[in-house]
Design a protein around this nucleic acid. Structure first.
Length: 596
DNA sequence: ATCCAATGAAACC
DNA sequence: TGGTTTCCCTTGGA
């Protein structure tokens, strides 16, 4: 069996190619073999336009004369009819074959360090590190990811506290506040199987996800374009995208605790909006750039956002280190902006303490996470300061007691402070985990499981890939933060892209993942409503007809009448996949649903 | 197949 | 402090 590369699967779901013409699609990659091509017909035969062909031919000719083996191309290119094209094609193929050996004779050059004698990159589905660079996982020198001590089979490294950071206050706290918390951890329920998904729901990558606080099946998603998606994943095809709320990246969102029909969003366009989910109409709370664009040094963007329901405050922070408080009722700022991180640096995350909402956490690009009291805000005077090796992507209080802190930093470490009252100088634990920064990905954020009373389970996507039976996949990791152990790595053969955004449902055993422009809903295997059998992973897809036409290829075990039903029901194409696995393509909306 | 661009932090001067 | 360059397992589209 040939090795699977990371891209060998999804591109065959041609639906995604929005601007492509049918002829391009059909001719690509042998998707249709000769015997299936009966209905193609007419002018659809040509793939490249004469103009392109000419340019290509010229380029070829040039290459030819350089390599000194040119032979009367004029005769071949003089004609512009079909036969000419096919001749040209076969001629090109021959040339390709001829040229191939030249490349093989080239010296091995590492694309990472440009050195010779070794090569970095994918060998099949396994990535080979450049030995001259620090380990891609733990950032230490002297070894590569392959031999990193933090990557022992399915476990990640954990660095225990450098010293015992617990003091007497800590124990008092344990006695008084944590009495109701079970000491024995429940068995974690891991949502590990894809239940349904929307492929290419958004037009840009997903930046954040949020479950509706009362409606169990509704998921909100924000993207890099500033759009807000609403999806009822129980009624799979009930979905909306609101496009006119923000003009660029929607960084964070939070439901209005006083009215769960509205949601607050912060964006890099410098505004906070309160959007009605029914109408999609945004209400502008704050605009930091009322005078428009005056260069990047003046343009203010809003990142961190949270809501203090007790005080009726929306707290947001910008890319210059400032915090803003907005009253939810009057929609007015309650005070002047306060500098809470190093001036000129981005504050990416804010989180209010679940028990004492006047306390909140901030984190940002100055490599710090800090605790603040909203009643006593003063620039530079925080209640606690937690240093990190790199930018801090997120900092969250634990969901029930709010006494633990979980942070994700770009130094590839997750840090846990077991008590906010203890010494914050060093974390209780550091867990080495691959969640590297990459400008093209949404930043990874480790998040608590909101249902875990023991406050130990956290979820975070993994950057680095692993070779799973010849396919490079990036699992979503479930980590027991009390031990640093990897509890589960969740993956699906057909999701070959990184899943930086993951949200666990506040009540159900469900996880939502945002990967690139798509959203996936996971459930535990035994609870999954639509899936039975183990071989779903090995499903095979086959292309069907479009625009109401009968499928070109007969569908497995399904009659043509059935497929017509599907076509009329969804007004769309159908892709039949083995067992109960279907792709439904919607050419009108250029969106696809998968359900199991 | 192969190339390109989008675009963010940090190192370097 | 500020402009410039580099980066290191991306993704999707041309």
């Amino acid at each position: 069996m040939p090795t699977q590369t990371r891209r060998s699967r999804f591109p065959r779901v041609v639906i995604e190619r929005e601007s492509e013409s049918e002829s391009d699609r059909l001719s690509e990659d042998g998707l249709l073999s000769e015997d299936e091509d009966g209905g193609g017909g007419g002018g659809g035969g040509g793939v490249i336009s004469p103009l392109e062909a000419e340019a290509e031919a010229d380029a070829e000719a040039e290459a030819e004369s350089e390599s000194g083996s040119a032979e009367n191309e004029n005769g071949r290119l003089g004609r512009r009819d079909k036969q000419g094209w096919s001749e040209l094609d076969s001629w090109k193929k021959k040339e390709k074959k001829k040229k191939a050996p030249i490349n093989i004779s080239l010296k091995k050059v590492c694309k990472v360090c440009k050195g010779t004698g070794h090569e970095a990159g994918f060998k099949g589905a396994t990535y080979i590190d450049c030995p001259k660079k620090p380990c891609f996982l733990c950032k230490m020198t002297g070894h590569t990811t392959m031999t990193c001590p933090h990557r022992v089979a399915t476990e990640h490294g954990v660095v225990p506290a450098r010293k015992n950071s617990r003091n007497s206050l800590d124990y008092v706290f344990e006695r008084q506040l944590r009495t109701g918390i079970p000491t024995i951890k429940p068995a974690f329920v891991i949502p590990d199987q894809v239940d349904c998904a929307i492929i290419r729901f958004h037009s840009r990558r997903i930046t954040c996800l949020e479950f509706h606080p009362t409606n169990n099946h509704v998921l909100l998603s924000g993207d890099k374009k500033g759009q807000l998606g609403i999806w009822d994943y129980a009624k799979i095809h009930e979905k909306t995208v609101y496009g006119s709320i923000h003009s660029c990246i929607l960084n964070n969102m939070k439901f209005n605790p006083a009215n769960d029909g509205t949601v607050y969003t912060s964006s890099s366009d410098g505004t906070i909006s309160c959007t009605d989910l029914e109408t999609g109409l945004p209400h502008l709370l704050m605009d930091l750039n009322p005078d428009g664009w005056h260069g990047p040094s003046n343009w203010r963007m809003l990142y961190g956002l949270d809501v203090n329901s007790e005080k009726g405050l929306v707290i947001v922070a910008d890319n210059f280190g400032y915090l803003y408080l907005v009253d939810m009722r009057s929609n007015k700022r309650t005070c002047e902006p306060i500098l809470i991180h190093r001036k000129g640096t981005k504050v990416v995350g804010l989180h209010c303490n679940p028990l004492q909402p006047e306390l909140f956490l901030s984190c940002g690009n100055d490599h710090f996470a800090r605790i603040w009291d909203v009643r006593r805000l003063e620039a530079g005077v925080s209640l606690g300061s937690m240093a990190h090796g790199r930018v801090v992507n997120s900092a969250y209080f634990s969901p029930f007691t709010g006494s633990k802190i979980l942070t994700t930093s770009q130094d590839n470490r997750i840090r846990i402070w077991d008590s906010i009252f203890a010494d914050l100088d060093s974390p209780s634990r550091e867990i080495v985990h691959s969640h590297n920064f990459n400008r093209h990905l949404t930043c990874f954020r480790a998040e608590w499981d909101p249902k875990d009373f023991s406050e130990s389970l956290a979820v975070i996507g993994r950057y680095i890939s692993e070779n799973y039976n010849g396919v490079a996949l990036h699992p979503i990791d479930f980590i027991d933060t009390s031990t640093g152990q990897l509890v589960a790595e969740v993956r699906e053969t057909n999701i070959t892209t990184i899943c930086p955004v993951n949200k666990l449902h506040p009540r159900d055993d469900i996880m939502a993942s945002g990967s690139s422009r798509s959203i996936f809903i996971w459930r535990p295997k035994e609870k999954s409503e639509r899936v039975q059998g183990k071989d779903v992973m090995k499903f095979k897809m086959s292309l069907c007809g479009k625009d109401g036409k009968k499928p070109k290829k007969k569908l497995d075990g399904r009659s043509d009448e059935d497929s017509d039903d599907y076509n009329s029901e969804y007004g769309s194409d159908l892709m039949r996949v083995a067992r109960e696995f279907y792709f439904v393509m919607d050419y009108w909306n250029l969106q696809v649903l998968i359900w199991l």
